[in-house]
């Protein structure tokens, strides 16, 4: 039981970081209908910007400046690149963001080199907040959790309870009506894209120093963010939150309990002493394949409930 609760807690810590990363993507998708393949690249930019700023001014200015910079880059990308592509339809947008991810990775390698940079957790928060099961949890881990929760709350109320949220949502479904009412719809989209990218930037700032800041970080995290938003339901903020927590918790449980898959194979009549590829399969444990669990979840979700947990439209 203790192990279960402990895994649950660790899963929430990891899941909330995933949520922070996915929130920007789901915001952009739900408000603009654009599936941004370069989202994890903006996450990476956030980490590198924060590294650069913190090198000169410390962590806290970086926490503010880096997301603003990433947001500005995002807004510029929307204004000068995505908007002209928009009229060729969603496939063109998708391909554009796909290419953008490679461009950003190359630029990052040119500017900051190909080996990881030393972006560190701020010393003021790198103190033990509490210990559980013999592991120390730094104040920084708690800080990450609080930031993620705060952003969820702010986004949720911002979109559902404020005038700005109303205009943004209306701009997606009734762009001409919103424009007739005197709102600049393209500008609304530019701001939305910028804010979505800035959220990825925030995730980069607070996640880059824990996960490591290197040019491969975008590619490694990119796919899992898509799993989060598809499982949660495309465009659903609440769905993304649930999916993130689910993936975080499943990942932790799979590793902590480390069940063998052998009983399943034995039931199918396959014994341990087989040769070749089956031998590898029979000896699998859930811990060994934990990072693949989200993708399994994705496949199952697409088969049985294509709209995702809280989605309103099919993928």
């Amino acid at each position: 039981m203790e192990v279960f609760v402990f895994s649950l807690f660790n899963g929430i810590l990891y899941g909330m970081l995933l949520f922070l990363l996915a929130s920007g993507l789901t915001l952009i998708f739900s408000m603009m209908g654009v599936l941004n393949f370069a989202h994890a690249s903006f996450f990476m930019l956030g980490a590198y910007f924060a590294y650069q700023v913190s090198d000169h001014m410390g962590f806290w200015p970086g926490l503010i400046i880096a997301p603003i910079l990433v947001g500005a880059v995002g807004a510029l990308v929307e204004r000068y690149a995505l908007r002209p592509v928009h009229r060729f339809g969603h496939v063109a947008e998708l391909l554009f963001t796909f290419g953008l991810a490679f461009v950003i990775e190359e630029i990052v390698q040119m500017v900051w080199g190909k080996v990881p940079v030393s972006y560190d957790v701020p010393a003021s928060l790198n103190v033990t907040a509490f210990a559980w099961q013999g592991l120390d949890y730094s104040a920084y881990r708690i800080f990450m959790l609080l930031i993620s929760v705060a952003i969820f709350v702010a986004l949720f109320f911002g979109l559902t309870r404020t005038r700005i949220g109303l205009i943004i949502r209306a701009a997606l479904t009734h762009p001409h009506m919103v424009a007739s009412l005197g709102h600049d719809v393209p500008k609304v989209f530019m701001w939305t894209f910028g804010v979505g990218c800035a959220l990825a930037g925030v995730a980069g700032v607070i996640g880059g120093n824990v996960l490591g800041t290197e040019p491969g970080m975008a590619i490694q995290l990119g796919p899992i963010v898509f799993v989060v938003i598809v499982v949660g339901g495309l465009g659903s903020l609440g769905g993304a939150l649930i999916a993130s927590l689910l993936i975080g918790i499943l990942n932790n449980l799979a590793i902590s309990y480390d069940f063998s898959l052998y009983p399943i194979f034995r039931a199918l009549g396959v014994e341990r002493d087989v040769d070749g590829i089956l031998a590898d399969l029979v000896n699998l444990t859930t811990g060994g394949i934990a990072p693949l669990v989200p993708y399994l979840l994705l496949v199952l979700m697409l088969i049985f409930r294509p709209r995702g947990l809280l989605g309103t439209r099919d993928v």
């Binding site: 895994s7 660790n10 592991l135 491969g216």
Partner: peptide
């Protein structure tokens, strides 16, 4: 004695650290 999915697929090492500690 464990094998993990290689090449950066594992993002969160906390559960492994917990097992090593235990």
């Amino acid at each position: 004695d464990e094998l993990i999915v290689p090449f950066g697929k594992v993002q969160d090492f906390t559960p492994f650290i917990a097992k090593i500690k235990a």
